[in-house]
Design a protein around this nucleic acid. Structure first.
Length: 155
DNA sequence: GCCAACGTTGGC
DNA sequence: GCCAACGTTGGC
C-alpha cells in the first residue's frame, strides 16, 4: 500500500466539500502537472491512503484522511472548452491528463499545520516542507505517515 | 538545444 | 499583495 498527500485550496474544494459529496467520493480533476500526473496515473492504487492538505489559506496544513477508490482514468475536464482545466492538446482518443477517485475517511482531530510539520525533524525529507516545492500530489513514506498520525494524537 | 519571458503556485 | 521558486512556452 502507498501513502500520498494531495493539496487543494479550500476555497475551491475543501475536506468539508468532500465529506458532503454523494458516497463521500469525488474525482480529483484538474491536475495539470506532469510529475503529479505520472504519480497519479502510474502509482496510485486502490486502497492507497491519502492526506488531504489545505493550501493557500489562513492555516495551510493536513486536515483529513482519504482513500483511493478508483484508479486513474482520463480527466474529462480537459476535453471541455467551458472548463477552466480545458486543454486542447488532450482528447478522448489521446488523453493527456488523468484523475483518480478519492473517498473521504475522516477529518483529523485537529489541523496539522505546515508550521508544525516543518518543526518536526523526522519530517524534514518530506517534499512538502522543502523550500519551493509546488507539487500538488506527493508520496508520503510509511514512517512519515505513521509519525504524522502520532503527532495528531498530541496537543 | 538554449534561455528569456511569462504564468502559476502557495507561503507569508 | 508580495515575491521566490518553479514549470512552460516560444523565438532563435
Amino acid at each position: 500500500m502507498n501513502y500520498w498527500l494531495m493539496k487543494s485550496e479550500p476555497n475551491a474544494f475543501s475536506i468539508d466539500d468532500l465529506e458532503k459529496m454523494p458516497q463521500q467520493t469525488e474525482h480529483w480533476d484538474g491536475v495539470r502537472n506532469y510529475q503529479a500526473r505520472n504519480m497519479m496515473r502510474d502509482q496510485m492504487k486502490l486502497g492507497d491512503q491519502v492526506f488531504f492538505y489545505h493550501s493557500n489559506c489562513d492555516t495551510p496544513g493536513i486536515v483529513g484522511l482519504m482513500e483511493v477508490v478508483r484508479e486513474s482514468y482520463p480527466d474529462h475536464t480537459a476535453f471541455d472548452p467551458e472548463s477552466k482545466y480545458f486543454d486542447p492538446k488532450s482528447s478522448p482518443e489521446k488523453p493527456r491528463w488523468f484523475m483518480v477517485d478519492i473517498k473521504y475517511t475522516r477529518h483529523t482531530r485537529r489541523v496539522l499545520s505546515l508550521a508544525e510539520l516543518k518543526a518536526q525533524e523526522l519530517l524534514e525529507n518530506m517534499p512538502l516542507v522543502r523550500k519551493g516545492n509546488r507539487l500538488s500530489i506527493m508520496p508520503v513514506a510509511k514512517d512519515e505517515w505513521d509519525y504524522i498520525l502520532r503527532l495528531e494524537g498530541q496537543e
